[in-house]
Amino acid sequence: MKKIIEVKNLSKSYKNLKAIDDLSFDVYEGEILGLLGPNGSGKSTTINSILNLLEFEKGTIKIFGKIMKPDAYDIKRDIGVIFQEVAVFEELTVYENIDYFCGLYVSDKLLRKSYVEDAINLVGLKEFTKFYPKQLSGGLLRRLNIACGIAHKPKLIFLDEPTVAVDPQSRNNILDGIKKLRDDGATIVYTTHYMEEVEMICDRIIILDKGKILAEGTTDELKSLAKLEEKITLEVKKISSKVVDEIKTFKTVDSVIQNGNNLVITYKKGKDNLGELTSFLHSKKVTYSKIFSERPTLNDVFLELTGKDLRD
């Protein structure tokens, strides 16, 4: 597959703090790469360094096979960026804002008009074209922010936490829009805190912390890294402590937690854990009203890899 971005040995410090530590990764054509990490993990710094907005100490960055430099205008022409902060002019209407930013890339007026209209339709702002940013809700503002970054139909798009503080309806609209951009051929680098978003839209994920890559792969590949394999929760009417202790001795069981009538059993590995458990309960004449099994989520993997300590 064609490499769109090649990052090699990238390092960047803020005074004594190492923000990115010898980072290397590639982004392939047509994929949505999720950059996942807690606050201060180096996600935004990585994007800003790739875009050459920040000076970095070490490393090389290639985009579309060419070295990225601040004046690499031929590369920049095919890049779209949506930053965390809403980057629009308060003094311009929705239409004018999109037209302004699109005009920095596309000089042909007719072509630009159609591009701007496409962007407005993509983010669903058709009814708000004459509104000023101050008149828009948080979700609409975020959508405007995205429209301004993608109106010129870039081949490579950076989205830095575009759904922060957005209501579920707007979030779905935004995520659908991102998938459509990928389906139209764009390559996307997507940073976020939201695991469900990553699971929903990303083809590949990089988990970053303290400027280093902790894990890299598809959602399933990352989930397979988790020590935890399965979690079974059951609601019982009555269960003796002897039976609970027996469950704890199962070969693949990691822990059993009893909380009133609820029993939560976690498994390290193993096949057909649910079948084995139900047969055992049946043999012990334990009746249960509910039983369900859960696979580990990306969130579990994320917390396992990055730890549960609070971040800034």
Binding site: L53, F83, E85
Partner: peptide
Amino acid sequence: KNMPNMSSVGKRNSTAPIP
């Protein structure tokens, strides 16, 4: 409005293919 360290619009403008 044209400096990336001064405003978000500056950041966006700095990624545009214009001197």
